[in-house]
Amino acid sequence: MDRGFSSVHPAVCFTYYIFIILFAMLLFHPVYLLLSIAAQAAFLLLHGRGRARGKSWVFFGLMGLAVLLINPLINHRGSTILFYLFDNPITLEATVYGAMLMLSLLDVLAVFACYQQVVDNHKFMYLFSSFLPKTAFLLMMCMRFVPLLLGRMKQISVVQKTRGLDMTSGPVKKRSRDGMQILHILITWSLEEALQTADSMKARGYGVTKRSCYWDYKMGREDRVLLAAILVLAAVTAAGSYLGYGTLAVYPTLGAVSFEPASLAFYGAFCLLLLIPIFVEGKEILLWRS
């Protein structure tokens, strides 16, 4: 059962994450980036997903580190020279720029992780089945086939192990050849069977009328209110970005992070936008605890 932000209408969640992903790429400013990363991290922790995909986060961390280091090493623009490395000036500006690039990369990846947590594959299908019905149907079938095929692969590998076909040991060349052999057995098994499925579908009237959807979501009053709030806050943030508040001037001299009233207002609007999922979740937790 969905709860919290996941129980909001999928169109609202989808719109929300489209904006957040756009802003993660558009806004190049430490305050915005740090706020967004903090909000995504808090959301993931709230969902107990802090440790999920730990391995890929190590990889993403290394990617971010590479971005952080590459920029000051290859880029010598900027007016404040920190030190010289092999006669190449390392500037403060390039270092800060590299750090912001790293934040931006991590932010994009964190937003995708949250997106996946909220808009799961069923909701994605629900949204797309209305204007790309065939493609959505194709994807839906394909999604169902993958676990089926993985189960079959397991069966095939257990049987084939008895005649020495084993993907888990040996040199890479042997393992990949054995893996392809398993795929070959799988394809002969599954294609034939898939066509029987198709005939059975046809017999039950596939393609006779418009397809309906198993999951149905109704847009309620709360969903509309949330959608309106998201649109207004996103419009304010976009206006801020258009007016130049969303980008920190780095070259030729590092600009200061501004805390004048106008920029504070734009930070605030973005902060409210970021807090929407946490607000929805928090409200639910409070209501159920008290």
Binding site: L138, V146, V172, S176, L183, S190, L191, K202, Y206
Partner: peptide, 27 residues
């Protein structure tokens, strides 16, 4: 105008390609 057979065939081939990626995740 795909018939049911062609739809299922395409999605099965795509599923095999995707499952192959999962099978070979160690390599």
């Amino acid at each position: 105008k795909q018939n049911a057979r062609e739809m299922v065939l395409i999605s099965m081939l795509a599923a095999i390609a995707a499952a192959g990626r999962v099978l070979f995740a160690a390599l």
